[in-house]
Design a protein around this nucleic acid. Sequence first.
RNA 1: GGCGGCAUAGCCAAGUGGUAAGGCAGAGGUCUGCAAAACCUCCAUCCCCCAGUUCAAAUCUGGGUGCCGCCUCCA
Length: 495
Amino acid sequence: MSLTIYNTLTRTKEPFQTLTPNRVKMYCCGVTVYDYCHLGHARSYIVWDTVRRYLQWRGYAVEYVQNFTDIDDKILKRADVEQSSMQAVAEKYTAAYFEDLHRLNVRDADSYPLATKHIQEIQDLIADLETKGFAYAVDGDVYFRVRRFDEYGKLSKRNLEDLRAGAGERVEAADPDQIKKEDPFDFALWKAAKPGEPSWESPWGNGRPGWHIECSAMIQKQLGDTIDIHCGGGDLVFPHHENEIAQSECAHDRRPLSTYWMHNGMVKLSGEKMSKSLGNFITIRKLLDDYRDGNHQPIDPMTVRLFVLTAQYRKPMDFSDASITAAGQSWQTIKDGMLFGYEFGEKLGWDNLDPIRADTPATIAEVDRFRTAADDDFNFAEGLVVVFELAKELRKVGNIITHDSEQTADPMLLKDKWQTLIELAGVLGLEVNPDELKVQVSGLSDAEIESLLTERQIARANKDFATSDRIRAQLTEEKIVVIDKAGVPSTWYRG
RNA sequence: GGCGGCAUAGCCAAGUGGUAAGGCAGAGGUCUGCAAAACCUCCAUCCCCCAGUUCAAAUCUGGGUGCCGCCUCCA
């Protein structure tokens, strides 16, 4: 069995073959740092983080690079609004990016190149393209000569004729620089400085880089001419990634920029793509800090991860109150299973609570099922089936133990299953904190609870159900779950 | 208008020729004074529609319909 990846370039699933055995060079288009990240960004970076984790779990050494665009009109505009500088705005929202994505358990990339730190590489690349006839300068701007690259459009599956036919008059109207271009689809590599905006000296006069060129230059610098996987949001296929290909492959004698191109589907809100421009977005911090689901509960960061992972990464997905609530319920199930070992391991006589899985026939079978699913173009939704089944089985045993009944399953087999669950959930970036079990969710001490229960027991014996129900309501308020049994004392636990 | 993609139960969603995974929600039961929690059982004769290929199709082909994305900055 081997890993297959859906390649946007060929629109088919292909067997995964790396340039160098067991090594993966992976580049992900990062954000333009002019605002807080929203759920759409969260999906993208959770997906690529999980792909990276999975590749590592499969034994690949992954070199993962993700850029920040820190030169951009929107950042400048924001700086104006915030009475700040481009650099200050970029730094503010870069810091916010890390805060938000760390909460979602997205691991740091191996490096985070910045456009402003690669001005020399960008200029060298533009000069190279100019020398080779793929770029031309006009009044301090430099444009890429799209017609010189006969493969232009190979990623997005469109050709210049289609584009011209489709665009009609819109192309002309949009851009005042249009008249400078040889072809309406030529795009800017370098933009002449405008008064009051940050700029850098260059052979073409003061100016700043265009958007597309930074990725080409930084990939070349950080990872080399050809990489294994280039990924990003589906909305970047055209023109951004198409242009990256044009720039890099023309500069590098047509050597491919990336073997595989991967794109994640968009997050939708009320049927429409979540985006800044439409204004229908919900930021990660708003979702995690202020949002309440259908059960009036706050959203656990792991719920967001699970929500993202339940959909195939290429498909669009809808965010709604109902869908995030369902994800929250589902996460509770998985969490219960993952906490099982920490909660019951000792009672079951395990000699340690080490979550590292050992190879046993039982664990290997589950791991194989998971791997088979995920090897098919990272079908984590199907892999999640194994996670759910393990979690539900452990939760069931946990409940049997909690409710003081006989527990007959083999403790060592349970440990195998628990360790497998921890490992597979971990591959998906789903983690629990064992300390959660120690947290006093109730302000009441055990003694106080016992005392109230005794009082309640007396009331129940006297058939004073009004009093017993009042005490139970009080305990429920304190998140104490009471279980009544006939003939034996009531049991309780913190829920 | 051009290009690309998607349509599976109340909701999310897997399944890519061999007779519909999983999750959430829901129903019934066990338990309880009644609950709650948990457990057990049930929950798509059928995969947007119409034709076709095949012994066999949700899965392949053709034609519709609907929805979405990109074509401007966008994860």
